[in-house]
Simulated assay, not measured.
Amino acid sequence: MISPGLRIAVMTDETGWHTGRLKKAFRARGAEARCVDLADCRIDTTWLPHGLVVPGFGRALPDAVFVRGIAGGTFEQVTLRLGILHALRESGVPVYNDARAIERSVDKSMTSFLLHRAGVPTPATWAVESAAFAQRVLMREAAAGRQVVLKPLFGSQGHGLKRLGARGGLLAPLPSLARYRQVAYLQRFVASGRPGFDWRVLVIGGKAVAAMRRSGGKGWIHNVAQGARCEPAELTVPLAQTAVRATAALGLDYAGVDLIPNPDDAALPLVLEVNGVAAWRGLQSVVPLDVAAALVDDLLDRKLAAQRRANEQARQAASAGSPEQSAQRRARA
């Protein structure tokens, strides 16, 4: 069991309840966790031996990194922050979740594509820059008696969602895409009953470990940040299997998977979103599992242990050299 003496970087742009729980869980394992803002890190090729500066760790690198939050910013700023995470991974530091997985889950269009490619049930989705094409989608769906949801490509907590379709016999035009940075991400609306609800399933290390039901909130939007009520939910086989498949499709170490009932097949719930930097305060309020401890245990006992084995194998391979070099050494001996 790995933990005593380890130094962990918790990447976050703000501290609070979640970081407090994580630091406590790391302390319980004998590890020291420091909160670090990715905006304060830098690539510096004069900073020997590795060219990466992580505040609070001197010239060393953390033993592992837990990504709790990445602040928004310009395209260049976000690219650099993700680049720091990529560089840490390339340097042999386990990053939980790593940059590639976060990129897949933050971009809703890529999430939808990867879920579809993996055969994970998810509502029909369109992501385009053409307002004219988006309007045609809206008209076609309305003609079939369906509605669509317009979402920001990058967004969370239910902000910026608009439900579109025919109302009162009239079809409203597509809103200006200026607010959505000229990208229309449209997802077919699927009613979840009355009152409406969805499920949040937490997946850690390839296993579904907890679930809750979220109901209420602002009409059909069931995010906790929008006032939804959290209730414990049975972690059924269909929910667990679908959430695990969705998490695997995006390559995430852990994820909060949002699902709704499938009106066509109760055994195949539909995945709405997969959150790679998932909050769990609402979930923690209705489940006995210590979520922070479960996350920390998975990072240390699975992710870090696997990375250390890989690092050791790479070191041994480098010291052994190529087969030709090994043969030459034997011949000289």
Rank of each mutant, 00 (worst) to 15 (best):
L6M: 13
E14K: 15
W17I: 14
G20I: 07
R21E: 11
V36F: 02
V36M: 00
L38S: 09
D40P: 04
R42K: 13
H50W: 11
P55H: 00
G56Y: 05
A64M: 08
V65L: 10
V65D: 04
F66C: 10
F66V: 11
R68A: 03
I70G: 01
G72T: 12
F75L: 11
R81S: 03
G83C: 10
I84C: 08
H86M: 09
G92P: 04
P94A: 06
P94L: 03
D98P: 14
A101P: 06
S109H: 11
T111P: 06
A118L: 05
T122M: 07
T125G: 07
W126C: 15
E129I: 12
E129H: 14
V137S: 10
E141V: 09
G145P: 01
Q147F: 15
L150S: 02
P152V: 04
L153D: 04
L153F: 09
G155C: 05
G155D: 00
K162N: 11
R163A: 10
L164E: 04
G165Q: 06
R167Y: 12
G168M: 01
G169M: 01
G169H: 02
L170I: 14
L170E: 15
S176A: 13
A178G: 14
A184I: 10
F189A: 01
G196D: 08
D198E: 05
W199C: 02
R200D: 00
L202R: 10
V203A: 00
I204Q: 02
V209E: 06
V209P: 01
M212W: 08
R213S: 03
R214S: 00
R214L: 00
K218R: 14
G227A: 03
L239T: 03
A240N: 08
Q241N: 14
A243R: 05
A248Q: 12
D253T: 12
Y254C: 14
Y254D: 11
G256N: 03
I260E: 05
P261W: 01
D264Q: 14
A267D: 12
N275R: 11
R281Y: 13
P288I: 07
A294W: 07
L295E: 03
D298T: 12
D301F: 12
R302H: 13
A305P: 05
S322N: 06
S322K: 04
P323D: 02
P323Y: 00
E324Y: 09
Q325A: 11
S326A: 15
R330E: 13
